[in-house]
Amino acid sequence: MAIIEIKNLKKYYGRSRGIEDVSFTVEEGEIFGFIGPNGAGKSTTIRTLLALIFPASGSATIFGKDCIRYAKEIAMDVGYLPSEVFYYDNMRVIDLLKYSASFYGKDCGKRIKELAGALGLDLRKKIDDLSFGNKKKVGIVQGLIHEPKLIILDEPSIGLDPLMQRTFFDLLGEENKKGATILFSSHILSEVQKLCGRVAIIKEGRIINIDTISSLQENSYKKIALEAAADVDKAYFSFDGVTSLDVKGSTASFIYKGSVNAILRKLSALELINVSIGEPDLEEIFMHYYR
């Protein structure tokens, strides 16, 4: 069953573009990555899903219900972690979390303790006095407090140290195992690569590719680095399928998409000292898309 279904979503802020044409579907139980550089339209899409802003045209459903009209019912089972932390002045962590819990009509006392324990968050402190990273933890806990069926994250890991990031991803993994679907928006590709199954890539307000991480990496792209006996001529590799070409004297590296046989023939014609053919990481594919 599709948890999120977005169809031709479009949003303009006055005359400036928010998103042009966004469509994708997130299936139940998926961890779905949503990647793109700053200003591509990730937050606009997410804020529309959350009914914080209203689309100019197109539609989106969550749990099969229109995300604008049934915003309230949908929110019951959605947890949202924004990129920037919000807080009310003069509240202690526990007050905010209890306030948050009060919206879902569940007793979340135990859950609060578990989550705060896992993240090492002091519940009695005033939110005002917390560091940025600790405020972020408050944001995480309040987003997961009601065991949501859908977790929407907008650049969630900024401000967390690597150790805490790992704990956080473990938490997300557990939620996912329990059945939660996750929409994960980010421009940090390594974390998307670590966590997500499928990704949608957005560029200038349009989705330009949707694929699984593994097939993005395996099927289409090879990352090739070589060292030749003599200096390499840049023109030698300037043919279809080669991108990110970098030639330095006798060494060269590039990303290749196309027939493996063709490139091997090309390579074997050179006097090589060393060669490596591997899978590029997402970052390199990403650069390819945005070139």
Binding site: L50, A51, L52, A71, K72, E73, I74, A75, M76, V78, Y80, P82, E84, V85, F86, Y87, Y88, D89, S100, F103, Y104, Q142
Partner: peptide
């Protein structure tokens, strides 16, 4: 101004409420 609109409006309540 407190950036709390995101917090409040992503909870299961309508804006009218």
């Amino acid at each position: 101004t407190g950036k709390t609109a995101d917090f409040l409006l992503t909870k299961p309540v309508t804006r009218t409420q």
